[in-house]
Design a binder for these strands. Structure first.
Lengths: 203, 203
DNA sequence: CGCCCCGGTTAACGCCTGTTAACTGGCTCC
DNA sequence: GGAGCCAGTTAACAGGCGTTAACCGGGGCG
């Protein structure tokens, strides 16, 4: 009735589609993946996807809005967790690094296919992203009192670029393994770099 | 005869097409721009482009190969310009920052639409990129003797992500103006961040 | 038992796109 | 002044795409 079927798996088909779509979109781009491809990848064929999503763009919208909301929520949680802006900054960096390393496909799709969203969803994602960036800007300005907001914004975007470089790492000894247990060496390295860059700012 | 027509303008139509294509591809993605759109944007209509390029993919190929060659050439020049690895590193950072700030569309297209290249061109671009990265890796290892090649590669990609974040900067006081004369404050800020990150590496 | 909705199928439609064909005005060069 | 190429044009084609329509098996429930 009100509850989704198979609550234990959490509406598995929908989530399976979103997961697979993220991988395919990351590899071939939104327009490079057809509905038929997507269906084939989850084991059904073609128009079956319309039983779960009203259209291809809606699927992308749900994916990108979900990412933005997740990042914003995580950012807000870290921002409220401490009064020391340096601690907050370190937590933000670690959070972003962890996400970027765990979900590189989402990182790729988010900034590559934003333009393919329908206008309304695009505005929504942009707003969420802006709010997330403002958390970083505020924190940076509290760490560096003389820093202008413009400079802080550039620095924040730079840090994102640094931390989100994970998709460019060829799978190898350091970056390898989706194993979530132990701390990744790559995440540690990138976090360290980001903190060094962000602590050295003028002001 | 052997010389291209209008050597003074350097085959202006071809270059105009490439420039406009870069802007459109950066905004809408390779598959999001039709040949007709492209023609309209340069003032001709549709199939006229086939007088200058054998096809849409070939156009993209020429663009991406050109970028990779330009970056590699610039990188090799900086690498040979000094014996002090720190000076080389600083020069590499400045070179990349300058390019990223001057040609943000090319930055976007290069890593977003690599997958849309025909196989042969893609391999060629990948090879050029790998060679460019190796310059950075070598330089980093000379600055930090204990650094492994894997770590250096991750650090290099991270630095690229940081420096290439320029397309995400909303046009504003710091990032504004294609005016090439005075040094951009944004470029200086990003270069400083990148150097701080790269000098702090372990090893 | 029979109803009905959920999630799937295949067939078909219409649009858009890359590409080719056929044709044409103008500029250069002999 | 005519030949020929260069850079355009419009018309047409074939293929692929997102989307819709029509149909159907199966499991839960009254």
């Amino acid at each position: 009735m009100a509850a989704s079927p198979a609550a234990g798996t959490g509406g598995s088909r929908r989530e399976q589609i979103l997961t697979v779509a993220a991988q395919l979109f990351a590899k071939h781009g939104f327009h490079g993946v057809s509905i038929a491809d997507l269906g084939a990848a989850v084991g059904v064929s073609g128009p079956a996807l319309y039983r779960h999503f009203p259209g291809k763009e809606a699927l992308l919208a749900e994916m990108l809005v979900g990412i933005s909301e997740h990042l914003l929520a995580g950012g807000q949680a870290r921002a409220c967790a401490s009064d020391d802006p340096r601690e907050v900054l370190a937590a933000l960096v670690e959070f972003q690094a962890d996400f970027a390393l765990r979900e590189p496909e989402l990182i790729v799709v988010q900034d590559r296919d934003l333009a393919n969203l329908p206008a309304e969803a695009r505005r929504r994602v942009r707003r969420l992203q802006r709010t997330y960036v403002e958390i970083w800007v505020d924190t940076l300005q509290r760490v560096h009192p003389g820093l202008t907001a413009e400079s802080a914004r550039i620095a924040a975007h730079g840090a994102f670029g640094l931390l989100n470089s994970t998709p460019h790492i060829a799978p190898g000894p350091l970056g390898a393994g989706r194993s979530e247990g132990r701390p990744h060496a790559a995440a540690a390295l990138l976090s360290r770099m980001a903190l060094a860059a962000l602590m050295d700012l003028p002001g």
